[in-house]
């Protein structure tokens, strides 16, 4: 749980780095202006320019998450006898190292494309931490497997597809965030269209999922809470998406006759702008993680053949990893 709670702020700060276009605020890697990452003078960091502050902060937080992942690996090997859980912990360590190298390569090659991939793989690692959180929770290990039914299959399918669509939506959003300077306006327009289309698809899936859980699994409190939370997050995300457009590009023209729209002046990199845009990105990661969490929970609860405490069972590992 500590790992998930520290990774989510890392997602926020990473998103803030893109919001302020601060990815190249420190031109070297893994050092920071020639200093070892951990020994860069903190006074210079704190008192320095804002983009340097968040980029170096992102690196420090990333290193911290890496250390916690190592600790998670050690604890898993020592305390958890489930073989697949140990493999998963090892996989997470490899994933966090790869994510760090990807971020560093983005700096070394000054590549927006690598920044885009870094922005897409970050939420995957965060989702892994949330899944690990679910699988190592005492509640989960104590829970009894339920009855497999067609409603259970539907739940699994809905949650899996919501997660897949949410990830595709993240990829589309990353394309809008990391748009290359010479991208044509036609390409950008098509990307926005698919981003809006996918938003509708994810929202529809999320609401269908919440309704399905409410109807068939009302007594499964963890499922019900997660499904309701997902629907709520999706509604909030839609509002944040609209707000992101307004704080970046002003109100649409069809509202120009209204005083509030005509008089609104966008302020570049203002606090509301950076908070709204960053929250929109961070919430996307949370939606993906919640959908995957629901999928894993539904697998665990509704597969009669599954026994989460069995160290040799590989079915769950096959789905999760």
């Amino acid at each position: 749980m500590t790992l998930a709670w520290t990774t989510f702020p890392l997602i926020w700060v990473g998103s803030l780095v893109t919001t302020y276009d601060a990815g190249m605020a420190v031109p070297d890697w893994p050092s920071t202006y020639g200093y070892n990452l951990l020994f860069y003078p903190w006074q210079t960091w704190i008192a320095g320019p804002w983009d340097l502050f968040i980029e170096h902060g992102h690196r420090l937080l990333g290193a911290f998450v890496g250390l916690i992942t190592i600790a998670f690996l050690v604890v898993t090997f020592r305390c958890d006898r489930r073989r697949w859980m140990q493999w998963m912990a090892l996989g997470m360590l490899i994933a966090v190292i790869a994510q760090g190298v990807l971020g560093g390569s983005r700096v070394l090659f000054d590549s927006r494309f690598l920044a885009l991939i870094h922005g897409c793989t970050g939420p995957i690692f965060f989702s892994l931490t949330v899944i690990a959180c679910v699988l190592t929770s005492p509640h989960t290990t104590r829970e009894q497997a339920g009855t497999c039914s067609s409603a259970g299959h539907t739940l699994q399918r809905l949650s899996l597809f919501t997660a897949i669509f949410a990830f595709l939506q993240l990829v589309l959003g990353a394309h809008l965030r990391h748009v290359a300077v010479d991208t044509s306006h036609e390409v950008f327009r098509v990307t926005v269209f698919f981003h809006l289309l996918m938003a509708t698809v994810v929202l529809a899936h999320g609401i269908a999922l919440a309704l399905h859980v409410r109807r068939h699994f009302h007594d499964y409190r963890p499922l019900r809470r997660a499904a309701n939370g997902l629907a709520l997050l999706l509604c909030l995300q839609m509002m944040l998406g609209g707000a992101t457009w307004v704080v970046k590009y002003s109100w649409p023209t069809w509202l120009a006759d209204f005083q509030f729209a005509a008089s609104y002046t966008v302020t570049a990199q203002s606090l509301p702008q950076s908070l709204i845009v960053t929250a929109h990105v961070a919430l996307g990661s949370l939606i993906l993680a919640t959908a995957l969490m629901l999928f894993v929970r539904s697998l665990h609860l509704l597969q009669p053949s599954l026994n989460a405490t069995s160290p040799n069972h590989r079915g769950l590992l096959g789905v999760v990893v």
């Binding site: 590009y249 002003s250 109100w251 005509a262 609104y264 002046t265 966008v266 302020t267 570049a268």
Partner: peptide, 9 residues
């Protein structure tokens, strides 16, 4: 900036 447009301050 320019109010009512995307030109920011």
């Amino acid at each position: 900036g320019i109010p009512g447009t995307a030109m920011p301050s």
